[in-house]
Amino acid sequence: MRTQAERARLFRALHERPGIFIMPNPWDAGTAKLFASLGFEALATTSLGLANSLGRVDGTLAIRREELIANCRDIASATELPVNADLENGYADDPGAAAAIIRLAADAGVVGGSMEDASGNPARPIYDFNLAVERVAAAAEVARALPFPFTLTARAENYLHGRRDLDDTIRRLQAFAAADADVLFAPGLRDLETIRQIVAAVPKPLNVVMSAADPDITARELADAGVKRISVGGALSRLAFAAVRDAAVAMRDAGSFQWVRDTVPTKDLKAIFQR
């Protein structure tokens, strides 16, 4: 089994080598093992996927901090792959208090994580610029004090909260990079041209989440645009719910069980889970 330091170095190397890589987003140990069995090189947690599994409406602080950390531990211990964690906004406004979640996540076994600039306050959903930068700097300070190279991702959440302001988003990402974030992330981007503009404007690797982007965009096109890392957020969780819903409706309305033909055989699941 790889040590945490080995996973951390492997994760950092994925960002430093040429080309792009894809991180699927498991929401529990079972899906983590499934994605690992398919040859992916890294995993990322998903707050939406976890909220779905708990039957809650996703949103800032829909999941308690201890639940999020427990989910990180479950996923990180399920495979040998490096895991990047969705750490919400750190569960605090104060930079130092928010940054404490970096050490908690590291103690749970993950080797990377994100800090977002969404406040959870509907009246002012995005932190003011200076506070947002201070929060990233505080998270970076905690990350650098760890005994392995923790990869810190800084998220500019404008596009998820109705603020389609490209200039402000770029300004924030540039400041986050200067505050020592390793990876930059602006969830909610949809079109390739906007993605290209951000890549050209920022000095650190960019993560793009395909749960909100135009699904016709391919990984090759993102690579050609200069994107380093792709994730899918809670999209695979929503896909799983769609498949289960459709099977349940077929049972209810037509008494049909043809969907059983599309299930993963038990022997295949046993082989995945025994690894």
Rank of each mutant, 00 (worst) to 15 (best):
A62C: 15
I63C: 03
R64C: 13
R64K: 14
R64E: 15
R64I: 08
R65C: 09
R65N: 12
R65T: 08
E66H: 10
E67D: 12
L68Q: 02
L68F: 01
I69G: 00
I69Y: 00
A70G: 15
A70S: 13
A70I: 10
N71Y: 07
N71C: 12
C72D: 10
I75R: 04
A76Q: 05
A76H: 08
A78F: 07
T79W: 07
T79Q: 04
E80K: 13
E80G: 12
E80I: 15
E80C: 11
L81I: 07
L81N: 04
P82N: 05
V83F: 00
V83N: 00
V83M: 03
V83Q: 01
N84D: 11
D86I: 03
D86C: 04
N89H: 14
N89W: 09
G90D: 03
G90N: 01
Y91G: 02
Y91K: 07
A92Q: 13
D93E: 13
D94A: 10
D94Q: 12
D94P: 02
D94E: 12
P95G: 12
P95L: 11
P95Q: 11
P95R: 08
G96W: 13
A99D: 07
A100M: 09
I101R: 04
I101L: 09
I101T: 05
I102F: 04
R103T: 02
R103P: 06
R103K: 08
L104S: 15
L104Y: 06
A105H: 01
A106R: 00
A106N: 05
A106I: 07
D107F: 11
G109Y: 06
V110I: 07
V111E: 08
V111K: 05
V111N: 03
G112Q: 03
G113P: 00
G113A: 00
M115T: 10
M115W: 03
M115P: 03
E116I: 05
E116Q: 13
E116D: 10
S119Q: 07
G120H: 04
G120W: 06
N121P: 06
A123G: 11
A123T: 15
R124G: 14
P125M: 12
P125L: 06
Y127G: 01
Y127T: 06
D128F: 13
F129K: 12
F129M: 09
F129Q: 11
F129Y: 15
N130Q: 15
N130F: 14
